[in-house]
Design a protein around this nucleic acid. Structure first.
Length: 476
RNA sequence: CGCGGGAUAGAGCAGUAGCAGCUCGCCAGGCCCAUAACCUGGAGGUCGGGGGUGCAAAUCCCCCUCCCGCAACCA
């Protein structure tokens, strides 16, 4: 009986095409999913799109198209991104889906009555931005964007009584019953909780929501605040609405993967909502960092957005996956640079792995050596720990240390000399060791660079073994 | 006193107490099987600054400087 493993990414709002940051999240999550599949677990990997965000409405207005058209168009781009990045998600939830509407409404109704209440909210609202501002965010009492005075708007909304869960949440996080990784993020969450939790709004008026989003059950005048509905995607995708078999089988999530910007929603709001509804809680929250460009934030207005499509088209999927996993720090913010990317390509992929494969395959072919497969599945405890700990950079370093050791082995044993001297026995021994090492490397590589791993395995299990084309041609 | 992250060789980074390390670049040698790839050796750092604890600190404690994010109904 295999173990179930449910892993999710966050669902981005789709007001624009996906950028490299989302690609990072996709790839990281994909590695964990593939790793668990390789171990024989019954994996369900979910990703999707938040289509109910007001940002989508605003983006559609700007483009002069309907919101529906906009989300259809942009969600398609996110789905394409998962495809070109070779992401193995089992489902892609769109929050405009019927079952999502039904599911998030069901969750709302499942929450304890005393946890959801109505309250008047009063705030400074900028019509231009269509959002509320805090006093301190204003410049001279004016909206920093439009330089106009915001209106005082009063609206009655539904609130969630987060304050009821302060103690429970603190214990939940503290005890690692819901484990926040890395530790520094856990500390951040704890100190946030300890500062005192305020109730948060879970609805807005239809008017403010522009008639877009999930209606509050029993109150047509209100639409769910996007977080309430967005978070529920993790269960609605499993057919929570109909109490489907996926929900029964896979919930709770084993890992939620999210960016550092939305940690509170996942570490605090989400478990509180689930507790209120009497549902099981997720087990782990992995928080990754952001990708910076030359030390600064990536943003459209600065025109420094890195497009994953362009990268993949130019260099191929596997180098992009490799770079994101090896040189973008798994949890800290990291700089992206194309120079570093190309350097990694040349040094690690072309000169390192690619060259080693050609080298050994060539030696085997030239000397017609027979490579015996020893099919013993070796356990790499240390390596497993790295992947389970989301230390993708170190896991790849571990693999590349092996590659480098194999290059060292060849330099030391000089197979070409053994061949000249007619020492066929020794030659066969050395080349078997090298080929065996490469096959081990390809096994370790499977979750990270699936296509490359497959190619390597094909080369070294072929009969007879042939050198073939370079895995990673040199950049010109 | 808002919260967090960062400051380590020319560049990019790893390293949470025990001789300061990796990749690229640079210099010198080796090899010639391989994608002008591979291997060995070398130069280059007072680990942001100051103080403290320890036999021992990049690593723990305190103070300071600079950089970058976030500041809850914003994904």
């Amino acid at each position: 009986m295999s173990k179930k493993f449910y892993i999710t990414t966050a669902i981005p709002y789709v007001n624009a095409s996906p950028h490299i940051g989302m690609a990072l999240e996709y790839v990281q999550t994909d590695v964990v999913a593939r790793y668990h599949r390789q171990k024989g677990d019954d994996v369900f990997f979910l990703t999707g799109a938040d289509e109910n965000s007001l940002k989508n409405v605003q983006a559609a207005e700007k483009e002069g198209i309907s919101t529906k058209e906009l989300v259809d168009k942009n969600t398609k781009r996110f789905i394409e991104a998962t495809k070109i990045l070779n992401i193995t998600n089992d489902d892609f939830i769109r929050t405009t889906a019927k079952k999502h509407f039904a599911g998030s409404q069901k969750l709302w109704l499942a929450c304890k009555k005393e946890d959801i209440y109505q309250k008047k909210y009063r705030g400074l609202y900028c019509v231009g931005c269509e959002q509320f501002y805090l006093e301190k965010e204003l410049v001279d009492g004016k909206c920093p964007e439009h330089l106009t005075k915001p209106e005082v708007v009063e609206e009655e909304n539904y609130f969630f009584k987060l304050s009821n869960y302060q103690k429970k949440l603190e214990k939940l996080i503290e005890s690692d019953q819901y484990q926040v990784v890395p530790q520094s993020r856990k500390n951040e969450v704890l100190s946030f909780i300890k500062m005192g939790l305020e109730d948060f709004s879970i609805s807005r008026s239809q008017k403010r929501a522009k008639n877009w989003g999930v209606p509050v059950p029993g109150d047509e005048a209100q639409v769910m605040y996007v977080w309430f509905d967005a978070l529920s995607n993790y269960i609605t995708a499993l057919d929570y609405d109909s109490d489907g078999k996926n929900f029964k089988k896979y919930w709770p999530a084993d890992v939620h993967v999210v960016g550092k910007g939305i940690i509170r929603f996942h570490a605090v709001y989400w478990p509180a909502m689930l507790m209120s509804a009497g549902l099981a809680l997720p087990k782990k929250l992995f928080v990754h960092g952001y990708i910076n460009i030359e030390g600064g934030k990536m943003s459209k207005s600065l025109g420094n957005v890195v497009d994953p499509f362009e990268l993949v088209n130019k260099y191929g999927v596997e180098p992009v996956r490799y770079y994101l996993l090896r040189y973008i720090h798994p949890v800290q913010d990291s700089d992206f640079s194309i120079e570093q990317f190309e350097q990694a390509y040349t040094a690690d992929l072309a000169n390192g792995l690619g060259n080693l494969v050609s080298r050994v395959a060539g030696l085997v072919e030239q000397n017609s050596v027979e490579i015996k497969q020893d099919k013993q599945d070796k356990q790499y405890k240390e390596f497993g720990k790295l992947v389970d700990g989301f230390l993708f950079d170190q896991a790849l370093k571990y693999i590349w240390d092996k590659i480098s050791a194999l290059d060292g082995l060849i330099a030391e044993t000089k197979p070409w000399e053994l061949a000249k001297q007619g020492k066929t026995k020794e030659l066969a021994k050395v080349l078997n060791e090298a080929a065996g090492g490469i096959l081990q490397v390809s096994q370790l590589l499977v979750p990270f660079l699936p296509e490359t791993a497959e190619k390597i395995e094909k080369v070294f299990t072929a009969k007879p073994i042939k050198k073939g084309e370079p895995l990673f041609p040199r950049l010109t």
